[in-house]
Amino acid sequence: MFLNHFEYFAPQAAKDALDLCDRLGAKAKILAGGTDLLNLMKDKLLKPEYLIDINNVDEFKGIFYEPGKGAVIGAATKISEIERSEIIREKYFALHQAAGELGSVQVRNMATIGGNICNASPAAETPTPLVALGAKVVISSLSGDREMPLEEFILGNGETALAEGEILTKFLLPEPISGSVSRYGYIGLRDAMEIDAVNLAVNLALGEDGRIIKQLKLVMGSVFPRPLVSEEAPEILIGKEFSAELAEEAARAASSESKPISDIRASAEYRREIVAVLSRRLLQEAFSAAQGEV
């Protein structure tokens, strides 16, 4: 129940935050919304000697969009801000949907997108749509910034590519290609505060004719230690005219690629089944929406 004793820092500038990270290394933890971190500390699973609170660092926050280039989202941006953002809703609908499903209003007001990614829970809400949208992360340290696709950043359950002294500072979302649409969905027992049994995102683009699939990314959550990008679904659908049968085939393929486990939330078998259902539904939904776009 009680946290270990720690020293608390609240830097105001990015430079100071990076400086602290560099000096304190593995003994420190970044504190964003604290909605994951404090639970782990209360359960004594983590006992950091220092906490570096990044909530006062303006450079780590906010949503910026430049037409043609895409969006930049600061890692310390609150989930509720993402949920309410007009531009995210317009351009990156799957992320908008996922943000609205994370926890409850109270949790969304505290939680950050960087925290959701760095916590790297396989059942988390935002990694799936972010990967589907082709997000990259910017990792900063005193020695400079490095960039990598989100797929490469999340390594496994609770594991990321962050090295000592580094902070995840930004997400880079490319400008969606024309005619593209993204959708997110999940299945759990109840309709809020749910740890998803399965979640899924698709990002689909149609050609000029409004029937042929030009681009597709289908990403599965909660069925593998990290977001799982379907390889077969795009092979089945890209370059083809969309049909219910093809969508079903792609959905089945995605389902057979998934590698879920059984736990108290659901059995592996059920999860695999749901991957197929959600895939088909989201493909259909995205296709219909994309038709409206072209």
Partner: peptide
């Protein structure tokens, strides 16, 4: 009727002694 239950492993260890894994309806339900 639809989801609340307590789970135990084969050694009788309580698996969901918290409101995260013991599901009660929310206002959305």
């Amino acid at each position: 009727c639809l989801y609340e239950d307590q789970f135990f492993d084969k050694d009788g260890i309580h698996l969901n002694p918290n409101f995260q894994d013991y599901k009660m309806p929310t206002i959305m339900d």
